[in-house]
Amino acid sequence: MPDPAERLVNLALFLAAAREPVSAAQIQAQVAGYPVSQAESAFLRMFERDKEDLLSAGLVLDVVRSGDTERYRLDREATFAGELALEPDEAMLVRTAASAMLTDPSFPFVEDLRMALAKLTAAAGTCDASAPTPVVSLLADEAPAVQAESVAALARALSARKIVAFEYTNLEGRHAARRVEPLGVFARDGRWYLVGYDTDAAGMRVFAVARMTDLEINAIKPKSPDFDAREGFDIREWMVLPFQWGPDRFTALLRFSGPLAGRAGGLAGAQGVLEVGADGTVLWRVGAAESRSLAGWALANGPGIEVLEPAEAREALSAGLREVVAAHG
């Protein structure tokens, strides 16, 4: 049996070298690797799969129809990339990001990243390889490989808009089967999370991937979506901070000063709106749900975070601190 990988490369080279569109019959006769005595129906099934495989490598085929025959040619415009010029610090970032994530067992897209890196370095010319890159990463620390595998499956499901089913154990230890329309995945504080519409609960939910088991993607009609795309969905709205959980929403105003002014972006975690003041401090207007939890968060991440509004959060902080003094006096 000839090597199927060789057959795919031969097919790609044949299509790319052809001056005119070619028919399936020409391909069967001329591309090395298709069994000579193969029945036409078996060949056509194999050729269909091969076309899918070429597409997954980025090679886009055009179909040219005349009468009953279909001919194929490489869509050069859709297939080939232009040159890419990277600044030295950009090239360094790409290189360190790729080498860190390629060795991170919890990174879900290793094989795709390897291919992306190969194409990028080909488009950007040389990639200086003088020293090993001293960067290592672990996005998720609990069962990293299991989380990576689940997130890769969830990402495929959300691109194809297929429903996923899994068993889930929530924070209180309750166990239930879930059916979810997957809308986004994100990593935070060493864990991967899925955001989606829970079809049984009829509401949006956030799930910790580490607490899922028996994950399955709906396998019926893999190419037709199970649900409509949600315009305006933005995962950042779900990557919330602890004090943002809860039904009562209000707007809080906080101020970062000292060394924390430079870290405001990271601490804000893409939530709310930051504004740099003339004195170098940073004002942060952010949605919150719980005054006491907001006060605790500001204290835990300080010194240098001041709660300015609302008055309830300032009072919760003041009362809480007095309790701390009384309990330790």
Binding site: T79, F109, D112, M115, L117, K119
Partner: peptide, 11 residues
């Protein structure tokens, strides 16, 4: 060759 959607997502 251009990056596929999955490759761009990974990068």
């Amino acid at each position: 060759v251009r990056l596929t959607a999955a490759e761009a997502r990974a990068l």
